[in-house]
Computed example of a mutant assay.
Amino acid sequence: MSNILDNNQPNESGEPSASPLSIEIVTDDPLPEPDWYDRIRSAVTHAATLRGYSNGEIGIRVTNDAEIRLINARHLDHDYETDVISFAYADEPPTIEGELVVSLETAQRVAERVGWSVENELLLYVVHGTLHIAGMDDLEDDVRIEMRAAECQVMKSLGIEDIVHYGPDRIDVNVKPSSSPSEARS
């Protein structure tokens, strides 16, 4: 079963809220807490705004490892599960369009391993994917540093101060930099 929500939910007066950045969230299974939908929307909005985007559409699918593995194989020829996959369609400020897919199952596994909340881990994937859609990359060391700084800034703007301890590429002799948030913590 799928839940579909968009950014134009009724406000307190019952009127649809008008936001120039439309955010649609599709979940293969309901999220653990109802407020996660709003937190995901906020993460997308903060990441897009940081990069100069205020209009457009971003779709998010929250799925499991088996499904993200199929998407990864079908679209990127990678036969493995991953934490986040992003598809950028348009990124001409102030307009952005794209989709991202995140694995709740990976978030649960990684969050338990690194010792922070599943919600924070999932939000990190959403921020990471949105930054990719907004034109950031993390394949080379110099741009990875910029992306990690942007991730930290967005996560802190969401009230997640402990990103410096649990986020990717944290200072840890057992962790090497990677191109994906959870890979850094494998």
Rank of each mutant, 00 (worst) to 15 (best):
S42D: 15
G59I: 05
R39F: 08
H78S: 10
H78Q: 15
N55G: 02
R69W: 00
R41Q: 15
T45W: 10
R69N: 01
G56I: 05
A43G: 11
E67Q: 10
Y53G: 01
L50M: 10
D65A: 13
W36S: 03
V44P: 08
V44R: 05
V44K: 07
T49H: 13
T63K: 02
G59R: 12
A47S: 13
W36P: 02
D35W: 10
R39Q: 15
R51Y: 04
A47N: 06
R51D: 09
N72W: 05
A66G: 01
I68D: 04
H75Y: 13
T63Q: 03
I58M: 09
D65G: 01
L70T: 04
A48T: 06
A47P: 04
S54D: 10
I40S: 05
T49V: 09
G52C: 10
I60D: 06
R74N: 05
I68S: 02
N64K: 03
L76C: 07
Y53F: 15
V62M: 07
N55L: 13
A47V: 06
G59N: 10
R61K: 14
Y53P: 04
V44Q: 08
D65F: 02
R74W: 03
A48V: 06
N55M: 13
V62K: 04
A48S: 13
E67N: 11
L50P: 00
L70N: 04
L50R: 12
L70D: 07
E57K: 14
H75G: 00
T45D: 12
H75M: 07
A66T: 12
R39K: 15
L50F: 07
W36N: 03
S54C: 08
A73L: 14
L76M: 12
I68M: 06
H75T: 07
Y37I: 13
E57Y: 14
G59H: 08
T45V: 12
N64I: 01
E57G: 08
S54H: 12
I58F: 08
L76G: 00
A43W: 06
D77Q: 14
I60K: 02
D35T: 13
H78M: 14
N64F: 01
G56Q: 04
V62A: 06
D65L: 05
D38H: 11
D38K: 11
H75D: 12
H78I: 15
R74C: 03
Y37L: 11
H46S: 14
Y53W: 08
D77I: 04
R41K: 14
I68K: 05
A48C: 08
R74E: 09
E67A: 10
T49C: 08
R51P: 02
H75E: 11
D65H: 00
L76D: 07
H46L: 13
T45K: 14
Y37S: 02
T45Q: 15
D38I: 06
N64R: 00
H75N: 09
N72G: 04
D38W: 07
H75A: 04
R39T: 09
G52T: 10
I40C: 11
H46M: 12
S54A: 12
I40H: 03
D65I: 00
V62C: 10
T63M: 01
G56K: 05
D35V: 12
R51E: 14
E67M: 05
W36D: 06
D65P: 02
